[in-house]
Amino acid sequence: MSNSLEPEGVFRRFKYIIKYLAGNLPSLAYLLLLFYLPIAILFAISLTRPRKYIVTWEFTLENYVKVFLEPTYYRVLWNTFVIVSVATILLIVVAYPIAYYLARIAPAIGDKLLLYMIIPVEVNYLIRIYAWRVILGENGLLNMLLISLGIVEKPLTIFFYSWFAVVIVIIHEYLPYVVVPFYLNLRGIPREIYEAAMDLGATRLQIIRTIVLPMSKPGLLSVIFIVFIPTLGEFAIPSLVGGQTGLMIGNLIDRYLSQFNLAIGATLSFFLLLFSIIISAIMIRIFGYEALYTR
C-alpha cells in the first residue's frame, strides 16, 4: 500500500515544482534579460576607456574618478541632488496640509477630491511640462501679469530656463502622488485614538505632534520612493524648462549617449543607479518593505 503511494507523492511534488517554475520563470528570465544583463553590460562599459563611437574594452577606473574630480560632472550631480531635495521637501510641505484636510477634516469629500486631483496627471506628463513653458516663459503669462500689475517693468528671466522652473514643474508633476500616501496614512489612524486623546484633554496641536506626525512616517518614506528617486533621473523637465542652472544628471547622460560616448554615459548611469539603490536600501532598512506598498 505505502509503496504504491510513493510515486504519486513524487509526481505531485514534480507537478508542484513545474507549476511554480511555469509561474515564476517568465518574470525571472524577463528581468534578467532586459534589466540585469543590460545593467551588467552597462557596468562593463562604464569601466572602459572612453572613445567616441566605439567601446575600446580597455578597462580602467578613470571614468569614476573623473565623475568626482571634474567640475562639469560633479557640479551637475550636486545640482541634481539639490534640485530634487528642495522639490521633495517643498512637496511634503505643500502636500501634507492637503492630505490632512482631506483625511481628517473633510473625509466625506476626500476620495472624490483626490480623484479630481489625480485625473489630470495620470496621462499627461510631457504635456504639462510644456504647459508650464507658456506660464513661466520670458513672454509668458506670469511675466505679463507682473508687468500689468506694475510690479516689474521688464520681463523677468529668472522664472524660465532655470533651477526655479525645474522645481516648480517637479512639484506640479508629483503633487498628487505625494498627497495620496499621506492621505492613506492619516485615514488609517483609527478614530478611537483621537477620541481617547481628546478625552484625556489633549489639544489639537498636541494630537498632531504626538499622534498624527509620527504615524505619517511611512508616508514620508513612500515619498522618497515615489518622488525623490524617480526625479533623480529626470530629464524631460530640465531639458524643456531647465536651461543652464537647471541642468541635471539626466541631461548629461543624454548628451554623452547622443554623442555616442558610451563609456561616460554608462558611468553616469551606473553612478545614478548605485546612488538610488543605496538610498533605497537605507530606507528599507529603517522602515521595512511595507512602505513600498502605500501607493
Binding site: L42, I229, G265
Partner: peptide, 22 residues
C-alpha cells in the same frame, strides 16, 4: 521580491539607458 522590485526603485532613465546599450 527584491529581484523583481529593484527595476521599480531605480530612476526610469536607468532602464532606458541599460536597454539602449543592450
Amino acid at each position: 521580491f527584491l529581484y523583481t522590485i529593484i527595476p521599480f526603485i531605480v530612476p526610469w532613465i536607468i532602464i532606458g539607458v541599460a536597454d539602449y546599450i543592450l
